[in-house]
Amino acid sequence: MNDSGGSVGKGKERICFLIADVSAMVLFSTALCMGIEIFIAKLTFFQSVTARIAAIPVNLVTGRPYGLFRDRLFLALGIDGTKPWKMILGDTLAFVIFQVPLYVIVLLCAGATWKQIFLSSAFMSVVFSLAGRPYGIFLEFCRRIAGNLARKL
Score class of each variant (00 low, 15 high):
V106Q: 10
P101L: 13
A110G: 08
G81A: 01
G67K: 06
C33N: 12
A24Y: 03
G90Q: 05
I145N: 00
F46Y: 09
A24W: 00
T62Q: 07
L102Y: 05
A110N: 05
S7E: 13
S125I: 00
F28Q: 10
T92L: 12
N59D: 13
F138L: 04
D71K: 06
D80Y: 05
G132L: 03
F69E: 06
R151Q: 12
A122R: 06
V104W: 15
V104Q: 05
A41M: 09
P57W: 07
S23I: 05
C16A: 15
V26W: 04
G147E: 14
R52D: 15
G78Y: 00
V127M: 13
D71M: 06
A76R: 06
I117C: 03
V49F: 12
A110C: 04
L108A: 13
S29A: 14
T30R: 04
D3Y: 04
K42G: 03
I15W: 09
V104F: 08
L102T: 10
I105S: 10
L108H: 06
R64I: 13
G63N: 09
F138S: 02
V58I: 12
A20W: 00
W85V: 10
T113I: 05
V127N: 07
A146N: 05
S4R: 04
R72M: 09
L68Y: 12
A54D: 14
L77Y: 01
I88W: 11
A24R: 07
A41S: 06
G81R: 03
V126M: 11
L43R: 09
C16R: 02
V49P: 08
I53G: 07
M87K: 04
D80L: 02
V22E: 02
N59E: 14
F69T: 06
L93K: 05
G63F: 05
D21N: 13
I97Y: 02
A55Q: 11
M34R: 04
L75I: 01
A146W: 08
M1A: 11
V49Q: 07
R70T: 13
S4Y: 11
I19V: 15
L93T: 11
G78R: 00
I53R: 10
